[in-house]
Design a binder for these strands. Structure first.
Length: 864
DNA sequence: GCAAGGTC
């Protein structure tokens, strides 16, 4: 029998050929320079194999000529316009190749990635091959890693294509095209007609279900920055100065107040006065000394490369990916699009480390790893079963510029991940002063280990003197000091990548593209403050988002919820709960309704955009010298250490935008400005008040709703009101505020302050409380449904363990009748892999309970 | 002149 195998990409076709052929194969080139056809005899079945590939999707949906031209129809007609899958010119050679190969084959075996898109690509391949040979037998090989045992198993036990998954993707592609085209044409044509600065027909004002929420994140943060009003807080500053070894020098230990700081002056003053009037001494309550570690970095995924690279190398995520792609093509890096942060057990570290031995900068470190310092990289939680984490595959020394920096980062990260965690010695001294707790933490770095090769991480000594339990002393300084909350930062690209990732906007391969899109569309401007790049919405970007928000649409176009509903409907199609056509119809109805409202109220967008473009249009030119653009918080954040108050005021002069896009008139920007902030209390003195003298109380700021008190309520733990504290430990979170239980031992409550703020602002969902699911409602056709097609119920993990307190959705039936449906509340809904799905799952939705369909690494769920 | 998703 002649079997034609078609993989999703060239690298996979080559790998499976090497495994199945045992290295004995012949190669034919094709009209596409990346695609090769490999021929061999498969020893185990005595079949003749040809292995080739496509390069991702073969087709892209498009309108017919009747609707393709912008002025050919009313944009609304696009929702009902017929759409056909077309093969773009660039894919024609690939199509011809599999068409010709299929003519001679008895069986088509599809080897695409095992995900929804892979299933859809499989169906595209099937169509071409069936045109070539109607009777060809179509099968699908299922594999999750390129390792010999799995590949042989897949070849010998092929299954059928999963039509439901392919249908879900097809529905999504059609919807994306229709919705994107309809909204883009409508808003572009209307704005070109009515706003002078946009009248040039080259100005496309695009709408896309991913790009708009991406813009929404940038605008929401900008608004947070703009509406921020600082609040004054009070804290007790306590130090002890001791003679040091060098004469005339004093060694100062700063103790942090366990309460962090208080926003009520009276309360702080009462506590402070009690302390200073008692005349008693501070007593050392506890000294803890323990070994501590700074963990080496995880193996590198695409999203992590973009986040870390943008933060550390100050390069745009798209640029980083482009460079990594180029270095991959040149053979210096592994495949740069991967979700995997764990190396295979058989991964050959030694030879890769060897290749770095001659590098003048990190060669010595590579040698030391080979000489015994090697330690297997940590395992992350992600594995796309297709590609290893990003790592250098060869050494190169002649790179320059950004290419060099990206290669260096990836290589150092790889070597660091193969090294040992850094080791330190941490001392914590807790003192009691009139019933108030203070503490100081010291760190001595014992072994730098991975830090030697990874300068991007900082971990430095912070020595404090020796203290003994029970020791008493008179503090050198004990003052009531004030500080002010500082405004949040504008988004960095790294923040945005993380937000998109968390909200399921785009995929690892497309996130960077979406960010690039909103920049090239002039919705967002990249703005540097120092070396850090912040994302600032343009007047056009804000105008659009605000205009749409004024329409009172139930589901705003600039929020992730619509995309999430599309995602949920796709899952329902995959589960057989919905047909492709039902999904398309439901989504189209929803978008058509929104379109009519948007069109009917478009004057709001026009007015808003016009206002921003014309009223603020010259803002930057009109107000030079305000360098507040980045909104850079200098890292002191809320700590209020008594030095200059608001963080991040850049040196005088305008920040320059190296992206020369700033020349385009419609992208003027409004710089977050606090000059008209009349509610702000007087600036606090830069000099601390003298010791033991309470500062003169500044004018209290007006009460602002939901600013600090988070929805006018205190944050509560299980025991009552929680307290706010600051991370003092040397770590990535140093200086960050959090809320915790005030009792010792308490209930263990913990929440980051910025998560709480985000949750309250509803602009950026926080990690855990954020739900991807809809609560059941009267009209709950979109609610989370289990496999019995019942509305799922949300429960909370009670069992002790890392998931305790986490919420999940399951079938509402009682134990015996409960089906195997399970989804985490804080993770996007996902289609169940076909191989794990019980046969009854397809069809009308009926499903016998008791089949465990999901391998769950946490082991939290096993039904039946 | 529209989208988002693959991949080179």
């Amino acid at each position: 029998m002649h079997v034609l195998c078609v993989a999703e990409k060239p690298s996979i076709s080559k790998s499976i050929t090497q495994i199945l052929s045992g290295g004995q194969f012949s190669t034919r080139s094709t009209a596409n320079k990346f695609v090769k056809n490999y021929d061999f005899e498969y020893y185990f079945t005595n079949d003749y194999y040809t292995v080739t590939c496509v390069s991702g999707h073969l087709t892209t949906p498009d309108f017919f000529d009747t609707h393709r031209k912008w002025n050919s129809c009313d944009p609304f007609d696009l929702f009902e316009a017929p759409v056909q899958a077309t093969i773009p010119e660039t894919s024609k050679s690939i199509e011809r190749n599999i068409f010709n190969e299929a003519k001679n084959a008895d069986m088509l075996m599809i080897w695409t990635d095992c995900d929804r898109e892979g299933e859809h690509i499989g169906s595209e391949i099937e169509k071409v091959c069936k045109r070539a040979k109607r009777t060809i037998n179509v099968k699908r090989a299922r594999f999750s890693a390129i390792i010999a045992q799995q590949i042989h198993n897949a070849a010998q036990h092929p299954v059928n294509l999963d039509r439901a998954q392919a249908d879900a993707v097809e529905a999504r592609t059609i919807l994306d095209l229709k919705v994107g085209a309809a909204f883009t044409r409508m808003q572009t044509l209307a704005l070109q007609r009515q706003v002078k600065k946009i009248e040039d027909e080259k100005n496309v004002v695009s709408y896309g279900p991913c790009q708009f929420p991406t813009l929404g994140f940038v605008v929401a943060r900008y608004k947070d920055v703009q509406t921020f009003r600082p609040e004054t807080f009070w804290f007790i500053y306590l130090t002890l100065s001791q003679p040091s070894s060098s004469p005339g020098d004093a060694r100062e230990t700063r103790f942090t107040w366990r309460r962090g700081h208080l926003f009520e002056y009276d309360a702080a003053l009462v506590i402070y006065e009690m302390m200073i009037t008692s005349g008693s001494l501070a007593r050392v309550a506890k000294v803890t000394k323990k070994e501590t570690k700074k963990w080496k970095p995880l193996p590198l995924t695409t999203v992590e490369l973009q986040k870390a690279g943008s933060r550390l190398l100050k390069l745009a995520p798209k640029k980083i990916l482009d460079i990594a792609e180029k270095l991959y093509q040149q053979g210096y890096l592994s495949y740069p699009r991967t979700e995997t942060d764990q190396f295979d057990p058989q991964f050959d570290f030694a030879s890769l480390i060897d290749k770095q031995k001659d590098d003048p900068a990190w060669g010595g470190f590579a040698v030391s790893l080979s000489d015994g310092d090697f330690s297997r990289p940590r395992n992350g939680k992600n594995n796309d079963k297709a590609h290893p984490p990003i790592h250098p595959t060869g050494h190169v020394s002649n790179l320059i510029g950004d290419d060099k920096r990206v290669y260096e980062f990836i290589t150092r990260r790889f070597l660091a991940s193969c090294s040992k965690d850094a080791l330190g010695w941490q001392t914590t001294v807790e003192i009691d002063y009139e019933g108030e707790e203070f503490y100081a933490t010291g760190l001595t770095v014992l072994e730098k280990n991975y830090l030697l090769v990874f300068p991007y991480d900082k971990w430095v000594d912070n020595n404090i003197p020796d203290f003994e339990k029970g020791e008493e002393f008179q503090p050198s300084v004990c003052e009531l000091r004030d500080g002010q909350t500082t405004r949040p930062n504008l988004l960095t690209e790294a923040d945005l990548v993380a937000l998109m990732d968390k909200n399921g906007i785009g995929t690892d391969a497309t996130i960077a593209q979406h960010i690039d899109t909103i920049v090239t569309r002039n919705y967002v401007i990249e703005r540097y403050e120092g070396a850090t790049k912040y994302l600032l919405p343009s007047t056009l970007g804000i105008g659009l988002v605000e205009g749409y928000n004024q329409m009172g649409l139930e589901k705003s176009l600039d929020k992730p919820i619509l995309r999430r509903e599309t995602e949920r409907r796709m899952v329902q199609v995959c589960n057989g709960q919905k047909s492709k056509q039902e999904m398309i119809n439901q989504s189209l109805e929803q978008y058509k309704e929104m379109f009519m409202i948007a069109k009917g109220n478009f004057d709001k967008v026009v007015t808003s955009v016009r206002n921003y473009l014309e009223r603020h249009g010259d803002a930057e030119q009109g107000r030079p010298g305000d360098g507040q653009g980045g909104g850079g918080n200098n890292g002191e954040g809320y700590h209020g250490s008594g030095t200059a108050g608001r963080g991040g005021r850049a040196p005088e002069g305008r920040s320059t935008d190296p992206a020369s896009r700033a020349a385009v008139p419609i992208i003027d920007i409004i710089i977050p400005d606090d000059s008209d902030d009349d509610s702000q209390p007087p600036p606090r003195t830069s000099k601390p008040p003298s010791a033991r003298q309470p500062p003169k109380r500044p004018t209290p700021p007006p009460k602002l709703p939901a600013s600090r008190n988070h929805d006018s309520g205190q944050i509560h733990c299980n025991c009552g009101p929680a307290v706010q504290r600051t991370v003092v430990k040397e770590s990535a979170s140093k200086g960050r505020l959090f809320w915790t239980c005030p009792n010792k031992p308490g209930c263990g409550f913990f929440k980051w302050d910025d998560d709480v703020t985000e949750l309250c602002n509803k602009a950026i969902p926080a990690k855990r409380p954020f739900s991807y699911r809809q609560e059941p409602s009267a009209n709950d056709s979109e609610s989370c449904r289990c496999r019995c097609n019942l509305t799922a119920v949300r429960k909370t993990v009670q069992k002790e363990g890392q998931n305790k307190g986490r919420m999940f959705w399951i079938c509402p039936n009682s134990d015996a009748a409960r089906c195997s449906f399970f989804e985490w509340d804080d993770e996007p809904p996902r289609a169940e892999p076909a191989h794990d799905r019980p046969p009854a799952a397809s069809g009308s939705g009926g499903n016998k309970p008791g089949t465990c369909f999901k391998c769950n690494e946490e082991g939290h769920w096993a039904n039946g």
